[in-house]
C-alpha cells in the first residue's frame, strides 16, 4: 500500500501553496488515515493518492494564549492538551482527551484532526462546543474563522474547501471561575466509540447564579448539538438548586439519534438526558463536596 505522492512541507506557506494546486489528504497524527486505509485495503479499495503531511510545520505546534483566547494549533495532540496548564474550564476538553482511544492515540491524534474527521462520535466536539470554540481556516489566499457549529456540516462533512486547511482551534477566554465537565458513555472502558456523550460549561455570578450555560451532546445526531432551550432555562438559576427535573425530554429536540450497532435511537436519547443531569450534578457545588 503506497501513497502516490507524499509531501511534508516545513512551513505553513509551503503547505498552503501545495493545497492551492490540487486536492490532498491532510495527515497529522495519522490516527484516522491509517485505519481508513486498512479498511479500504482489506476489500481491495484504493490507497490515498496524495498525502500532505503537516507534522513538520512548527508554527502549528503550540497552544498560545492571546489576550482574549487560547489558540490550539493543528499539531497539538490530545496528550499535549491533557497535560497543558490551562484554566479549570478546560476540564471538559481535557477529560474528553483522556477518553480518546488509548494512550497511543492520545499521543498522536490531534484535536484539529478530531474535528476535521467530523465523525458524529468525535470525542472532542461536544467539549469544544461547550467552550464556544471557533475554527481558524487558512488558504494561500487568506484566512477565515468559523464557529465550530458552522464548520462541521454533517457526518464526515466540513466547511473547508480543497485549497484550505484548519490551522487552529480558537477557544475564547471564559470567566476565571467557569466550570466544565464531560461524560462519555460506551460499552467498554477503553478504546471505545461513544454511544452518547455530554459536555457542559457553566459560568456563575457572585451569588452563584448561572450567567452562562453551554450544554452539548455528541453521538446523538450527525453533528454534536448544543441544547439552547436547556441553556436558556439554566440562566439565572442558582447553581445550588439544580434538580434533575429541570432537564426535560423536549429540550433534547435538536438531537436526531440513530439506531446502530452501539445502541438504539431511543436509548441514546434517554442516555443523553441522564448524562446531562449527571453532568450538571457534577458542576453543582454540593456534588463537588460529596465527591
Amino acid at each position: 500500500m503506497m501513497a502516490q505522492i507524499y509531501e511534508r512541507p516545513q512551513t505553513l506557506d509551503a503547505a498552503l501553496g501545495l493545497l492551492s494546486g490540487g486536492s490532498w489528504d491532510i495527515l497529522a497524527g495519522g490516527t484516522d488515515i491509517y485505519p481508513a486505509s486498512a479498511a479500504a485495503f482489506a476489500w481491495g479499495g484504493p490507497a490515498p493518492e496524495r498525502i500532505l503531511d503537516i507534522s513538520a510545520i512548527e508554527e502549528l505546534n503550540s497552544i498560545e494564549e492571546t489576550q482574549d483566547a487560547y489558540r490550539v494549533g493543528s499539531q497539538v495532540t490530545w496528550t499535549r492538551m491533557i497535560e497543558a496548564d490551562l484554566p479549570a474550564y478546560f476540564n471538559c476538553l481535557q477529560q474528553a482527551g483522556r477518553e480518546v482511544g488509548g494512550r497511543q492515540i492520545q499521543n498522536r491524534g490531534t484535536l484539529v484532526g478530531n474535528i476535521c474527521n467530523a465523525s458524529p462520535a468525535a470525542d472532542g466536539v461536544p467539549a469544544l462546543l461547550a467552550l464556544d470554540a471557533a475554527v481558524e481556516i487558512k488558504a494561500a489566499t487568506g484566512c477565515r474563522t468559523l464557529p465550530l457549529s458552522e464548520y462541521i456540516l454533517g457526518n464526515r462533512e466540513t466547511a473547508h474547501g480543497a485549497a484550505e486547511m484548519v490551522t487552529a482551534i480558537v477557544v475564547p477566554k471564559h470567566k476565571e471561575h467557569a466550570q466544565s465537565t464531560f461524560l462519555k458513555l460506551g460499552a467498554r472502558r477503553y478504546l471505545v466509540v461513544s454511544i452518547a456523550m455530554v459536555a457542559a460549561l457553566i459560568e456563575t455570578d457572585e451569588a452563584n447564579h448561572i450567567t452562562c450555560a453551554r450544554i452539548a451532546v455528541g453521538a446523538c445526531s450527525a453533528v454534536a448539538q448544543r441544547l439552547s432551550v436547556l441553556e436558556s432555562a439554566l440562566i439565572g438559576r442558582s447553581l445550588d438548586e439544580l434538580t434533575n427535573e429541570l432537564v426535560t425530554d423536549d429540550m433534547l429536540s435538536p438531537l436526531m439519534p440513530i439506531d446502530d450497532v452501539r445502541g438504539s435511537a431511543a436509548y441514546r436519547r434517554s442516555a443523553a438526558l441522564v448524562l446531562i443531569q449527571r453532568a450538571l450534578g457534577i458542576l453543582s457545588p454540593s456534588e463537588r463536596v460529596a465527591s
Partner: peptide, 28 residues
C-alpha cells in the same frame, strides 16, 4: 494485529511516548 490502532500490539516508544507503529508514517 490490526493496522488500525485498535489493538496496540505494535506499540513502540517514539521519543519516549507510546504510539501505535501501524499509524506512524515513515516520513514522520
Amino acid at each position: 494485529g490490526c493496522d488500525a490502532g485498535d489493538c496496540g500490539a505494535c506499540t513502540v516508544l517514539l521519543d519516549g511516548r507510546q504510539v501505535c507503529a501501524c499509524m506512524i508514517p515513515l516520513g514522520q
